[in-house]
Design a protein around this nucleic acid. Structure first.
Lengths: 68, 68
DNA sequence: ACATAATGTTAGATATACAAAACATTGATA
DNA sequence: TATCAATGTTTTGTATATCTAACATTATGT
C-alpha cells in the first residue's frame, strides 16, 4: 500500500509529529503509514485524509495485490 | 461507523456469504461490518467497496465522532 | 407445516495495528 | 563543526480485527 502522505504533508509544511498530533496517534504510526509498513484501520485512514484536506482514495494508492 | 453494504448487496442480489467469498473473508465478518460492529482495515474496506462496484467513501459513512 | 437458506449471536484463538519508549541517523542552520 | 529538529529503527506490550466453529433465529419456498 503506497500513499501520498509524505507529499501532501510537505505541501502543508507539517512534520510527522504535527500530523500525528492532529490525528491523535504516535509519530511512528505516521512514519509506518508513509512507508507502507502497515494497513491502517479505516477510521485512521479517514482521519489522516481529513487532516491532509483530502480523501482516502486520494491519499492511499491501492494496487492490484490489494484485491487478492 | 455505518455502512451501505446491506443496501448495495441487496441491489446486486448477493448474500452475505456471496460477498464474503468474493472478498475472501468469513461471512460473520461481513455481518459485523454491516452492523458497524467494527472498524475494518483499509484494504478490506477497499475490497468490499470494489466487490460492490463502489468506492470506500460511498460504502462507509463517516460520522463526526470518527474524527475524535 | 416443513425444509432449507439466510441472517444473527456467541466464545475462544490468532494475527497485527498501534502504543510506548529508547536510541540512531540524517539534515538544516548558526 | 556543533547543535537541534526531523526522520528512521527496534523492542515489548496491548487492544482489536478477523478466523473458526457451533448454534439460534428469521425468512422463503413448496
Amino acid at each position: 500500500m503506497k500513499t501520498r502522505i509524505k507529499d501532501l504533508r510537505a505541501r502543508l509544511n507539517l512534520t510527522q509529529a504535527d500530523l500525528a498530533s492532529m490525528v491523535g496517534v504516535r509519530r511512528e504510526t505516521i512514519l509506518f503509514l508513509e512507508k507502507g509498513k502497515y494497513n491502517p484501520s479505516l477510521k485512521l485512514a479517514h482521519k489522516v485524509a481529513a487532516a491532509l484536506g483530502s480523501t482516502i482514495e486520494e491519499v492511499f494508492i491501492f494496487e492490484e495485490e490489494d484485491l487478492l
